[in-house]
């Protein structure tokens, strides 16, 4: 069976500094995988490599068996690699409807249409509403994104990413900055993601990681320290040392 996402010997150096060192990842279709590591472990660099923001110095990235390491950001999105951002990257002046409609239009090859209004294609509109409903965003879907509460904006982050119909979805600290009382909303939304989507969760919050993930990869100093099931990782003395040593 082909893997949903695979990296082979992925490496990135900045000048003399190695930010990502020989990273091998193997994710099966539908996997729930977490990527953890202390600050400066190179999680952000790895995401940037996977999504095409940075070009790898060496190694390969395969999405469903196809090498994507040389493709641009948009091309990877079109091939089914979605992502969310640690810091909200939304369109402040657009409403959730318009934001999600953008993603749906692009995905269905209608993004270049200039001769018809947004929303005149029923199929697109149906899909937009489906996505918004899934994340409980219909209530405020007609208001500019900047006026939404922060927690809703975090949900919209995931909603837009899902609207691109990704095969692999990278969630970069989806609950970052969300107050304690609202975190469960995010976690529930993440847990309810479609089963056939492979999800990679990058997170600091260990409760969330342990509740959500099936397998965990621990990244330290740009390299994979270890990889295993939740139980294996939580018992691993080296992982504890890394985290206790840090905190």
């Amino acid at each position: 069976m082909t893997l949903a996402l695979e990296t082979i010997g992925l490496k990135k150096t900045f000048g003399g500094l190695t930010a990502t060192n020989d990273v091998h990842l193997r994710l099966e279709k539908g996997a729930r995988h977490a990527l953890i590591g202390p600050n400066g472990a190179g999680k952000t660099t790895l995401i940037n490599l996977l999504t095409g923001v940075l070009a790898p110095s060496a190694g390969q990235i395969r999405l469903d068996g196809v090498e994507i390491g040389g493709m641009g950001v948009e091309a990877r999105v079109r091939r089914g690699l979605g992502r969310t951002f640690q810091i909200n990257q939304l369109f402040p002046d657009l409403t959730p409807i318009e934001t999600v409609a953008l993603a749906v239009s692009e995905r269905s090859g209608r993004g270049g249409d200039w001769w018809r209004r947004v929303g005149t294609r029923g199929a697109v509109l149906d899909e937009v509403v489906d996505v918004l409903e899934r994340f409980g965003l219909t209530e405020r879907m007609r208001e500019p994104t900047r006026t939404l509460p922060y927690g809703k904006q975090r949900l919209l982050e995931i909603a837009v990413a899902l609207a691109t119909k990704p095969r692999v979805l990278l969630l970069d600290e989806p609950a970052a900055g969300v107050p304690e009382g609202e975190r469960h909303e995010i976690l529930e939304a993440v847990e309810a993601l479609p089963k056939d989507v492979t999800v990679v969760l990058i997170e600091h919050d260990m409760d969330m990681v342990f509740r959500f993930a099936e397998r965990i990869t621990v990244l330290v100093a740009g390299a994979v320290l270890t990889e295993g099931t939740v139980a294996e990782i939580s018992d691993d003395p080296r992982v504890r040392a890394v985290y206790l040593g840090e905190g």
């Binding site: 999105v77 939304l90 369109f91 993603a103 692009e106 993004g111 270049g112 200039w114 209004r117 837009v160």
Partner: peptide, 30 residues
């Protein structure tokens, strides 16, 4: 018509946040 079309919305998206526009799959250069 153009500014209210998917194309027009994509332009506003590019203006507001190029990073996210790419992540949504908008071919920014085109």
């Amino acid at each position: 018509v153009v500014v209210h079309s998917p194309f027009g919305h994509a332009l506003r998206a590019i203006r507001d946040n190029r990073l996210r526009a790419r992540a949504v799959g908008i071919p920014v250069e085109r």
